[in-house]
Design a protein around this nucleic acid. Structure first.
Lengths: 207, 207
DNA sequence: TCGCCTTTACTGCACGGTACGTTATGGCGG
DNA sequence: CCGCCATAACGTACCGTGCAGTAAAGGCGA
């Protein structure tokens, strides 16, 4: 339950820690760094969280919750697979572009020393998302295939058949790579990026 | 000049360091860890490299050279833009999938503490690659536009115009995200992945 | 002889975490 | 209303450990 409560010191610690971990790396960010950024002492920090590990643990849990609530849950009311995929693309990109969500969710994609059980949970969640996306893409492929009968069969023979799995990884790459290049002051923002990426998926790069 | 010389201790140190840095993170990998993995002492390690920083520096330089030699240089003899783009996709994916190149080049995409000058150089190289790709995609768009006259204009009005820039980032995302999900023992390997990703680019996800 | 180590010991520093003291605040009872 | 107490939320000083890097002496093999 990520409540927007700037008055909650624990949330503030998590947010600041996530930002510093992302900027400098987990191991290169000391608890003194985090404390200083919060204008606390280290002792004050340890009043709220038992260890540095616990902070990382909580950040990861929070990041997984964001994806669940912001992306996956709103899709459940959408029956049409194509519409569902379009909405997924939009929602996922919105999470990546949102400053608040970005600094937390980027942590899911970086290599952190995590306890095996947490690492396992995160990997399981990632796999679920991939499978979900894979199935959704398969549905959309099926739908489009029954709506548009194939023409000029011999021209299509040279084209590779794209598996939903490869397509799912490609789409995740397109979206999640945004963490690497996105700039809040750049000219690619939600209102032009989402339509373009959606068009790349549905119309191709050169349609 | 990355020479395939397993007898070159410096190269061996760089390779092993890159692997460990990638697995555990730069800061969480000690010089003792690196030395132990090489069956050396720390003192022996410092005989070859002056500092941990220097090792990281050399790894990064090497990674940039790989991209230049393996991807960009071979493209120069190809006149046709579409052919050039197809080849770029193939070569870039091959780099990511090659065990030797992957463990070095992945370092380019992780958040390491780097001296500002090296960070600046890497960012400049990345930008060059993006610009190169952007221009190439624009050429292909232009070529395809002059070859295939647009039909049913009103049906196209609802489609977003995809800028070469957005397309370039999307393509880089597709390819570079492979670092995140690829498994040497998985069912997606070069011979099926390259055709599928190429098809995704040229034919779309649902063509 | 020289390159390439090993071993040992060390330095200075920074780290995560701990222990204890202090302060501010709220609640309660006389 | 005020004193007292409990507690949360700190701050400071400290601990033990591990780090990058250094130095010196010596060994071994080509």
């Amino acid at each position: 339950m990520p409540r927007d409560t700037a008055a909650d010191p624990k949330q503030e610690i998590l947010r600041t820690s996530a930002r510093l971990f992302q900027q400098r790396g987990y191991d290169a960010t000391s608890m003194n760094d985090v404390a200083a950024a919060l204008k606390l002492s280290k002792g004050g920090l340890y009043h709220h969280f038992q260890s540095k590990d616990e902070i990382l643990f909580e950040i990861m849990n929070h990041a997984m919750e964001i994806t669940q609530e912001r992306v996956l849950n709103p899709l459940q009311g959408i029956a049409d697979p194509e519409e569902r995929l379009r909405t997924l693309i939009r929602l996922h990109i919105e999470v990546v572009l949102s400053p608040r969500d970005r600094e937390i969710t980027v942590m899911l994609h970086e290599n952190h020393p995590l306890p095996p059980s947490l690492r396992k949970r995160i990997n399981a969640r990632k796999k679920e998302y991939v499978h979900f996306l894979e199935k959704l893409i398969a549905e959309v492929q099926q739908k489009i295939r029954t709506q548009k009968p194939r023409g000029n069969g011999s021209a299509d023979a040279a084209k590779a058949k794209v598996s939903p799995r490869a397509a799912a990884f490609a789409l995740l790459g397109m979206i999640n790579w945004i963490y690497q290049w996105y700039k809040p002051e750049g000219d690619l923002q939600a209102q032009n990026l989402i339509p373009q990426f959606t068009e790349l998926v549905f119309g191709g790069f050169f349609a």
